[in-house]
Each structure stands twice: as structure tokens, then as C-alpha cells.
Amino acid sequence: MTNQRLVVSISPHIKNGRTVRRMIVTTIAALMPATLWGFYQFGLDAVALVAVGITAACGTEALISRLAGKTSSLGDGHAVLTGLVLALLVPAGAPFWLVIVGAAMAILVGKMPFGPLGGAPIYPALVGLLIVATSWPNEIKSYVQPTTAPIELKAQGAADAEFPRDAVLIDPSDEAEYKTADLFLGKQVGPIGVISPLLLLLGGLFLILRRVSRWQAPFGFLIGMGLAAGIGHALDPSGCASASFHLFTGSAMFGAFFLCTDWSSTPVTPWGMFLFGLIGGGLAVLLRIAGLPYGAVPWAIVIMSLATPIFDRITPTPFGKVASHA
């Protein structure tokens, strides 16, 4: 076993001088504007939650590496990213233990069993998030009033912007209260890191320009959501909010640019990525309308991740190749 010359590792195999560590650091940097906006809107509670999330994820990863007798993979920063993403998807009023359990579960169940990096079939932070969300459905909705928001945080349900069903079931009069521009600029109630579509869009475009992620999946996702919401709104304005409302609330933008672009749990071919996003976006709107109590976007992306192997079969035909009839 010691004279292995060729070591085949899990994809991505692109070799151009970039390292995994740099890609992850770039992703974290792209998340920073939205994170800082969350800190501004929700104050020290949000800072503490993010710190706790990152610490818990790194601690779990270090512990498991130690127990398994492997060299620690903390250096690539993936645990930091996982903890950060998890904390950003949790509202600022959530208890600390919720984030700790979520981050630990993300690493323990979502990441480590599939190899340290690149093998996870579902985005690890989403695994952690959905485990805690299904276990403690009330705590995961502990929203707090942001510093600047045009409307007061009213009854829990009415203000749950993420919360698909509630968001969409708001009276049309309530929807009018949310001005699209306010929503876009991040003056809304929601989890810490996802309330500012503008900053997330900028961060996502930065990632695409730095070639850390591709454009197909995020834009596919946004188009899918827009189409589904547009059709739904045209058919039944009282049952389905408008496309812009769907796109600018909840974790739609976050999901599109930071969850649909994960390296290991989404397809690798261009058409595969686009279809993954398109169907995922439609599914997210469907879940928002037809009734998940929590987290339509995360669930839609998790469901699509499970179908990733199917999308990966949609490969471009090499130039000059004739379809064979075997």
C-alpha cells in the first residue's frame, strides 16, 4: 500500500493552482457583507450565535479527527464555513444550544461519515439545520426585531419572512406593507444572514466572477422560483405572493448563491446544474405554498441534492461523437 503512485481523490479535479482552502476562504469572504448586515440588524446576539456555530463545528471536526486517528482537516476551513452557514440560517433569538447541536450534527452526520471533504451527498450545514428544525420547530422560529425594519415584528407567523407558508399566507394587505425595495435592501425579519438579498447577490456574483462557483445553478434556481411564483400569482393572487416577494424573502437568495453551488452535493455538468437549480426553485415555491411548516428553500435543495446523481448523467456529447445504438 505504500507504493501507490496514483491517488484518485473525489471531485473536483480541476487543477489550476487554486486550492480547496482558497475557494473556501473566498466563499467565506463573499458571505461577509451579508453576515455583517445581520450583525448590524440583530446586534450582539447574532455575533455570539455565529461565533458559537463556528466554534462548535470546528470543535466537533477536531474531536472526530482525533478519535478517528486522522490528521485534522480543520486547516481547509470547511468546518468554519459549515458553522458559519448554519448560524446564518438560524434566527438571532435562537438559543445557543440549538446552534451547537446543529453545528455538531452537521459535522457528525452530514460531513464526517462521507469522508472529510467533497463526499457529502447533502450540504452538511443543511443536514444540521434540518435536524434541529424538525426537532425543535418552535425554537427555530425565534425571530427578533431588526434594528431597521419598516414594519414592527407582529405576531410570529405574520413576520416569518422565511416561513414559506406563513409568508405566503400573509393577507394581500400585509404583502403591500412589505415594500419590495425594503425587502431587497434587507429591511426584513428573518434568520441572521439571509435577510439582505442585495448583499447576498453581490457576494454570489463575486463568487461567480472569481470562478469559485458557476452561474448555472444560482440563476436556474432564481428563474425557477420566479417562474413558479409568477404562474402561481397569476392564477391565484390571494394564495401565492408575487415573484419578487418570493425571491426577496426567506433564504431564497442565500440558497441560490451559497447552497445550490456546493461542490459535492450538486451536479457538475452545466445543464445538470441549470436543471438542478430550475427544478429546485420551482420545488421551493411549491413547498412554500403547499405547506411545509418550516424551511421550504433548504428542503427543496436537500431533495434536489438527493437527485444529483441523476442530473450528473446529463453530460454534454463530446464533439464528433455519434450516438451509439448498442
Binding site: 452526520v109 461519515p113 435536524i131 424538525t134 426537532s135 425543535w136
Partner: peptide, 17 residues
């Protein structure tokens, strides 16, 4: 104390693993 995930079906798979 209630960690519902563990008594839900997915928790069974995780614990079995």
C-alpha cells in the same frame, strides 16, 4: 428533554450507522 430527530425514522438510520 426532547430531541425529536432521534425518535424520528431518520434518527434510526443514524443510530444504526
Amino acid at each position: 428533554f426532547l430531541f425529536k430527530f432521534m425518535v424520528d425514522p431518520p434518527g434510526a438510520f443514524v443510530c444504526l450507522g
